[in-house]
Design a protein around this nucleic acid. Structure first.
Lengths: 212, 212
DNA sequence: AACTATTTGACAAGAAATTGACAGGGATTT
DNA sequence: AAATCCCTGTCAATTTCTTGTCAAATAGTT
């Protein structure tokens, strides 16, 4: 299956298409044209068609797109039709919040939370067990964990990332304000909240017409 | 002061420059060339020079850039040299986590947390008072609040955003998985965690050479 | 069954972002 | 003080991304 490289800009837009299509699907609409979707989403119809065509033709001339079919197909492309077992490293406020988030409907299931504080050992969050860091390698080797969520202090993240990649983790969702250096084959997705906040701050100071 | 529009791509990179320069500054380095920074940051030197030149020439031929000066200037551009009073709407896990985050060093100071649960009324998080939602308009009118952080359930966000923009809030940092519709002049920065996770999921399934 | 209205997929044109190249000015060395 | 080296700012080339256009195909209508 030789496909040409899909651009990052396209991938970034897919979750938004997925979300809108899900809502449209729930509202009971069966079919939609790129033009209608374009109106709802405030992007050009041309871009929608072009984006979708990267993955093959999901529509039909004179009809448009079947909402359920398109939603499902985008789900497959994004991988949300599969189960992705996760572990959260760092049981602080953020780890706690993420453990309570409803990612499960998209297949992201948290299997365990790791921390260093002895008082948390043996406790659980919404049924998800909290374990001590020394059991990390053991757990990851035995259980089919795909994604590790990093919500621990900046100073300890690099070391933990090394341990995780050593025992076979292929994906890191990194909340630490730090660029991780990982071996070939490991994917890292950063959530740099301060960066986001600084962009907001810039836009407050330099307000100009938005494309809203 | 008539400046031409700076592209979003450039703004998105500024916080990262700011972070690296801060670290370099802390390590005691006084000057740096675009080439050295390029190595550290894994972007082209040309891009660094081009990005910085959007805001004027901060460097000097034969010398490079003064780290402290450049760091400060980017800070000013991003607005982190000023105080940005914030309020957090939604005192759940996420609101709680954000209230404990150390955004203050960059000038983002949380003044209050709003919630609907009566049992939280009068409590505080790290000294930040938790208030009931009915005091929202009153508080925002009296205090110089700039940014509202939205960490409440999807179903209630739109209504709260309307209330906030009505009483003069100019910036929303939105954690709800929903695109907000706001009046002209209000800036919204979204943090869509599920989108980020879905992009990670895509990249797990479709791994190919990264530009790392 | 023929006709009209829709609407995709493909392609080309246009816009934007990134990279490469280099002249010129300042720093450093001899 | 002169010569050499370094490195920016800028411009041009290239690449990537976005938008507009239209033939062809299907749906719906008469």
């Amino acid at each position: 299956m030789e496909e040409r490289q899909i651009s990052k800009a396209v991938i970034k837009r897919l979750p938004r298409y997925y979300r809108y299509l899900g809502e449209i699907l729930n509202s009971g609409v069966e079919r939609i044209s790129s033009g209608e979707l374009s109106n709802k989403m405030q992007v050009t119809a041309s871009q929608i068609r072009q984006d979708l065509n990267n993955f093959g033709g999901f529509g039909q001339q004179g009809y448009g797109y079947n909402v359920k079919y398109l939603h499902d197909e985008i789900g497959k492309i994004l991988g949300v039709d599969r189960i992705h077992p996760m572990i959260i490293i760092g049981g602080g406020n953020f780890g706690h919040a993420l453990a309570n988030y409803d990612f499960e409907k998209d297949g992201f299931v948290t299997k365990a939370i790791f921390d260093v504080r002895p008082e948390l050992d043996g406790t659980d969050i919404r049924g998800i067990p909290v374990m001590m860091m020394d059991r990390l390698e053991d757990f990851v080797s035995r259980e089919p964990v795909e994604i590790a969520v990093l919500t621990l202090p900046k100073s300890r993240v690099a070391e933990v990332a090394r341990r995780l990649t050593c025992c076979g983790i292929r994906a890191l969702w990194n909340f630490a304000h730090l660029d991780l250096d990982v071996p070939e084959g490991v994917v890292v997705e950063n959530v740099h909240l301060s960066d986001s906040l600084m962009q907001l701050s810039y836009r407050i100071s330099n307000y100009e017409e938005e494309q809203g």
